[in-house]
Amino acid sequence: MATVTHKAVTEPDTETRGRPARKRRAGGQRTATVIALRVLVIVVAVALWQMMSGPVVPEYAVSKPTEVYDALIDMLGSATGWTDIRVTTVEVLAGFGLGVAAGTVMGLVLGSFPLLGRVLEPLVAALNGIPKIALAPLFLLFFGIGPWSKITIAMTGVAFVVFYNVYLGLRLRERELVEVVQVMGGRRHHVLGYVTIPTLAAPFFAALKTGGPLAILGVIGGEFIASSEGVGHELFTAAQNLDAAAEFAGLIVLVALTLALNGVLSALDTYALKCLGLAARRRPQPRG
């Protein structure tokens, strides 16, 4: 009887210990399947593009994947191409960083002082309603065709997104939690560490992921209007020359830049939420 009881107790423990390994294997298989399907979609799309270019769609308008590949190799193999990529990358990163800083400061200030927020929020909303690309000629007058005009356009788009996420996050902060911390003797830095930062973490990083593409859009739009170098300048030149292959090559570079920026922001988001102890909130809860 003792042996039977021992088996009855230990067998569920062994099964329980084996569940995490099976879940990891199942998760790895699902991830591999998703990646394989993504690659398959890309391969099918490129094959259809190659076959339809000419017989179905004019080749001068869409070129062919083989010609786009040659144009991309030429771009990456030249000093001019890498100079354009470097200029656009620096402008995007500078505009993004300055926009995040400006939006965060505005959101914290207006969110921390309710009266000031009620006074200035309509003005901020009115400025945000202006299309950012419409401000490009004004910035060009101030800063010329150099990089600072593009950086300012990118900064403007990112700043408003970050501002609204931080500002609304502060307004939606649970007042009861703040009062509990204060009743327990907590000071402003305790409220900041235990209530404000955990509350703002998710909307702040959501704003960063939204602001990344906006920074790229602002820089490329500014380079379209007036510039002497940059990926946007090359795209505009290729469009004027009806060079579809060079146009698609530039777009591929922009896609790679967007994916790289989003990957860095996603890794930073995961790391920050893990440090704050908020990562578990994003995990899907087991059913049953």
Score class of each variant (00 low, 15 high):
residue 1 M to K: 11
residue 4 V to Y: 08
residue 6 H to N: 10
residue 11 E to T: 15
residue 13 D to N: 09
residue 15 E to S: 11
residue 16 T to N: 11
residue 19 R to S: 04
residue 20 P to R: 14
residue 32 A to S: 11
residue 32 A to D: 02
residue 32 A to R: 13
residue 49 W to L: 10
residue 53 S to E: 05
residue 53 S to V: 00
residue 64 K to D: 08
residue 65 P to Y: 08
residue 70 D to Y: 08
residue 77 G to M: 12
residue 77 G to T: 13
residue 83 T to N: 15
residue 85 I to H: 10
residue 93 L to D: 04
residue 96 F to M: 09
residue 108 L to E: 11
residue 115 L to Q: 10
residue 127 L to C: 15
residue 132 K to F: 06
residue 133 I to S: 13
residue 134 A to N: 09
residue 144 G to N: 10
residue 157 G to W: 02
residue 158 V to E: 11
residue 158 V to R: 13
residue 164 Y to H: 13
residue 169 G to D: 10
residue 176 E to H: 03
residue 176 E to D: 13
residue 178 V to A: 02
residue 187 R to L: 07
residue 190 H to F: 01
residue 193 G to K: 06
residue 196 T to M: 09
residue 199 T to W: 02
residue 210 T to D: 12
residue 211 G to N: 11
residue 213 P to A: 13
residue 214 L to N: 05
residue 216 I to D: 04
residue 220 I to A: 07
residue 222 G to K: 03
residue 234 E to G: 08
residue 237 T to F: 04
residue 241 N to G: 06
residue 244 A to R: 12
residue 246 A to Q: 14
residue 252 I to G: 00
residue 256 A to W: 13
residue 260 A to R: 00
residue 267 A to G: 06
residue 268 L to Q: 01
residue 269 D to Q: 14
residue 275 C to A: 12
residue 284 P to Y: 00
residue 286 P to F: 03
